[in-house]
Every structure is written in structure tokens, then in C-alpha cells.
Simulated assay, not measured.
Amino acid sequence: MNPSTSQAFETTVVHAGEDPERHMGSLSTPIYQTALHVFPNAEDGHLIHEGHKPGYFYGRMGNPTQAALEQAMCEVEGGEAALALASGMAAISNAILSIVEPGDHIVAPASLYATTGALLDGLLPKLGVKVSYVDATHAANYQEAVTPKTKLFYLESPANPTMKMVDIEAVVSVARSKSITTVMDNTFATPYNQRPLDLGVDVVVHSATKYLGGHGDLTAGVIVGRKDVVDRAHWQTNKVLGGVIAPWTAWLVIRGLRTLALRMERHNSNALKLARFLANHPKVREVHYPGLETHPQHVLARRQMKGFGGMLSFDVGGVDEGRRLVDNVKLCSLAVSLGDVSTLIQHSASMTHAIVPRERRLAVGITDGLLRLSVGIEDPDDLVADLRQALQHV
């Protein structure tokens, strides 16, 4: 499907990737449960195998169900090309490794997803790639960190789990002035709330495990954006790393996309209601949510986001207080993921960011009592009641 440029996102996401003519009239894209595709002749075998002609030959290099998801993601994010992969980290690592080489330099936000940090701190230095971390709330910090070897600016906004924002257009302006490629993790916001490619970012990555799938029943990732980068990720990096998405998983992500707009409307409204409740609770020290007027970058969030998302974090004091709260929720589930229809809560210091040294964690705002809340689509009054009773134990 090739949507009209004037078509609403809510319409595009329902029909993205549809091609009944290509799939024998099937409105729902079939699951092509095969590892191999037969060539009609030797010449086509050569051309398809080398990527000179469209087609499929081996599951690691593509599948029609996977291709339907990739087309859908191009439509909903506005990208030239996409590559679906086995996980969000497969998407992040493939995107980065398709851009940098030994001797190159990356500038990244100090506050970001912990496993992305593990990639930047652990694997990349072994490959001869240097990384500098900056306070990404000020675009000037990216510029100050640039060296003659800087090849990539990495962005994450809102940041995990501090909800700090990046001025996307300002960072892109710095990058373009110095011919630096930009890669942005748009998992928290989703393309419903934020369109980084429209703001000039070169490549967007998603953990499709989260909001795109939406139901906590799959693990997947997506790269979408500039064709040359995506092509390198497809035909070079992932060809040897092999982080291939399964056809059944690709189909589940496509199905999840159909309800993305509806779910995000509810995630957004529920999160704002819970953020306001928590901001007025005497046992909560601070709430981080870009939809609150008290968020230091609320004006920026209003400018570059359609909605403020389903993610928030709040501080209840210390490690013991944080653990007591998560041990006493009844409706919320204690789990490390996010973007599910169910509300999920975690204590960041002892869970996802336990691998980060305490001094570094505190320096970027991940305090001992910080709790991350992925607000689901339940009745918001029930969620407020659950948090209210759990806070009595803090």
C-alpha cells in the first residue's frame, strides 16, 4: 500500500504493509513458514542471491512476511527502507555496526537504555570504536564532543528511565553541519507520538517487543530510515550476525501495529493521569513525565511530540522504599519490559540499571528510589488505587 501523504496516521497504521494482490488476495499477510525459496533458473538465482533483483532465497536474508512488516514500518515512520530483526538490541547493534568502523567515534547520551550502554562500553571499544557520553538535554554538548573521527550521534528521547528529552532538530542540525549520521531509539515514544525521520534523523531503531507488538508476547526489533544504512545492515552486518526475525514473530508485530494508534491514545491519557496523581502524593519526591508542566523540557516535548507516551518514572526515596512499593502492588506487574497493554513497574537501580556503577547511575538521575512505570490501558482509576495502596507501605 502506498498511502496518501495527507492520510492520517490512524488510517495508515491500520493498512500499512497491505498487499492482497501479492499474497493471493489475503487481507492478512500470510505467515511464510519456510527457510528456503526455490529459484526459477540459474540467472535469477544469481541475481536474487546477490541482491540485484527482488526475491527471496534463505530465511536469514529475508522472508515475505518480514518484508510486509518492513514495508509497514516504512509507511508509519516515513522511512526509505526498513529491516526487521530478532530483538531491539539486534536492531540497535546492527544499525550502529553498519555505520562505524575501527577508529571511529560516537557521541551518545549519558542517560540511555542500560544494554545499549553495555554495547557502547563493552563491545565497541574492542572493535576500536570510541564513545563519548554527554548530557543530551543540551544540543551544544553534542557539538562540543565532536572530534575529527566522529561518525555517529546516537539519540534516545525520552530517555530510559529518566524521561530526559533531546532537542532532535537541534542535534540533527549539528550532525548535518559535520556530515555525521544520526541514529535514534524511538521505542518509548513510538511513531504515533514522535516522528524523528521527519525531524531530520537518518535512522530510527525500535524494540518492537514493546509498543509496536504491544502485548508482551514477542521479541523483535526494527531499523528504519535511510536506504544506504538499512541496506548495509541487511546485506553486510546482519548477513554475518544473523539476528533474523521469525515469520510468525513478524506477523505478530504487523498485527500489533493495527491497533497502535488506539493503544497509544489510552497509554498517553492513562500515563498523564497517573503522573498527576503521583506528583501530588506526599511520599513521592519527584515525577519524571514530559506531559507534566513541571518537567523541565515540557515545552520541547509539546513541540516535537504529538503525545507524551505511556512511560514515566518517579522517586520514592531509597532502595528499600522502592523495593517495598514494587513488592506491594497488586494490579501492576513487576517486570522489566514495557509497552504492554498491562501496566508494568520496575525498580531501576536493582533491575535494568543494576549493571551501571552507582556513581554513574546517580550522575544521570537514576536515583536509588527511582521506579519506572509502563502505564497500560486498564481503567486509570484502578491503577491509581493500586499505586495509592502500595505507597502506604513506603
Rank of each mutant, 00 (worst) to 15 (best):
K239D: 04
G221W: 15
N270Q: 11
L119W: 07
V299P: 02
R361N: 05
G216K: 09
L199S: 03
G17P: 09
D382G: 15
A390G: 06
G88F: 04
A250F: 05
Y113V: 11
Q304C: 04
A363E: 07
M61Q: 08
K130P: 00
L292A: 06
L127A: 02
G243M: 11
P247I: 03
L257W: 12
H288S: 15
G78V: 02
E378K: 10
G256P: 05
H281S: 04
I180D: 08
A118H: 03
I254V: 15
I245V: 15
K149A: 14
R372T: 04
R388F: 06
H206G: 11
F308H: 09
M89C: 05
P247G: 00
P247F: 09
Y56W: 13
H37L: 03
Q71G: 03
Q71T: 08
P102A: 12
L362Q: 14
Q297N: 10
A84G: 13
V129Q: 08
L338E: 06
S350E: 10
L119E: 07
H15V: 12
L83P: 07
L274F: 03
N94W: 01
G310Q: 00
P282I: 06
T5N: 09
S207V: 01
T65G: 10
M24Y: 04
A108H: 11
S313Q: 09
V240S: 12
D44W: 03
D135E: 06
G307I: 00
L362S: 13
Y289M: 06
R195D: 04
K164I: 08
T294N: 10
S111H: 11
H288W: 14
S269I: 11
K126I: 01
H393R: 10
E286Q: 15
V172R: 07
R258F: 00
A140I: 06
C332Q: 11
R388Y: 12
G216Y: 08
V134P: 11
A363N: 15
A90R: 10
H393C: 03
S98C: 13
Q71M: 01
Q194R: 14
K306D: 04
S98N: 14
L274C: 13
G25V: 06
I254F: 12
A208S: 12
L120I: 00
R232G: 11
Q346A: 07
L362N: 14
L370T: 12
A114V: 02
L123M: 14
N94V: 02
T249M: 02
S132Y: 01
V204F: 08
I254E: 09
A136N: 01
R285V: 11
R302M: 09
M24E: 12
P282L: 06
F153S: 03
A42V: 09
V13L: 05
Y211Q: 11
L373A: 04
E80M: 01
L27D: 10
A208H: 06
S28D: 15
S26H: 02
S173Y: 09
G339M: 00
L272E: 12
G369Y: 03
Y58I: 09
L199W: 00
A363C: 02
L391N: 05
G318L: 02
Q194I: 08
A16K: 00
P109S: 05
Y32K: 10
L199A: 13
M1F: 03
N94A: 15
A118P: 00
I168A: 05
H281K: 12
H267Y: 15
A220G: 07
A349M: 02
R226A: 15
V244H: 06
G307K: 06
S111Y: 14
H281I: 08
V356H: 10
Q389R: 05
T115M: 07
E321N: 14
L383Q: 04
K130Y: 02
L262A: 12
N268G: 04
